[in-house]
């Protein structure tokens, strides 16, 4: 084999290696593809988060978007980056989470995160709504920058950016994979503009 071929092959190996590393990094970032993923309306999760059976993709993905997340035996996390119509969530819009949460968990919460996966600097510290929040039994949670005038449970937004929501169920009644795939999760509807 010619020396020039060896050099070219080596260069191709290195360049492609860097491209492969970049692909792995980008692919495991927010919104990345997750094997064993479950999708219910706008909400997605994986049955293997945090467990020793987690595959390399899921483990890498979770370490970037949910480090120190608990396995299914303790909690179930569902995240939404889009609404029920498939449109990206935007802080300049208003949304409603419609429907009651599944029964069984010791407690649940829904929290909004900025595009960097951290809590946003919202003026009123209404980062989340939980099962302990007054009014949640009515089955309507408002997700918006403006405080709802009717006193509905409120997840506060701020700025002009995309965001995501995470729905947490803690100490659920040992939901199986099949039950996780078929939970009756609430709708996530854009109401304005």
């Amino acid at each position: 084999m010619r020396l020039s071929t060896v050099i070219a092959a080596g260069a191709a190996f290195v360049v492609a290696g860097v491209a492969g590393a970049a692909t792995a990094w980008i692919g495991t970032g927010p919104g990345g593809w997750v094997p064993n993923a479950i999708r219910i309306n706008a909400w997605t999760t994986s049955t293997v988060i945090g467990s020793q059976s987690a595959d390399a993709w899921t483990r890498a993905y979770v370490s970037r978007i949910g480090l120190l997340g608990l396995p299914r035996s303790e909690s179930a996390y569902y995240s939404a980056y889009v609404d029920d119509s498939g449109q990206p969530l935007e802080t300049t819009a208003s949304y409603e989470i419609r429907g009651v949460m599944p029964e069984g968990p010791q407690w649940w919460s829904v929290t909004a995160y900025g595009p960097d996966s951290f809590l946003m600097d919202v003026p009123n510290d209404h980062f989340s709504v939980s099962s302990a929040t007054e009014g949640v039994d009515d089955g309507r949670i408002v997700v918006s920058a403006e405080r709802p005038s009717d006193g509905a449970p409120w997840v506060e937004l701020t700025g002009d950016q995309t965001f995501s929501l995470t729905l947490r169920f803690y100490r659920h009644p040992n939901w199986t994979d099949e039950e996780l795939r078929n939970l009756d999760l609430p709708q996530l509807v854009r109401v304005s503009p």
Partner: peptide, 10 residues
């Protein structure tokens, strides 16, 4: 090279 970089990073 692509495969090695991808799976090593992953």
């Amino acid at each position: 090279g692509f495969g090695a970089g991808y799976f090593f990073t992953l």
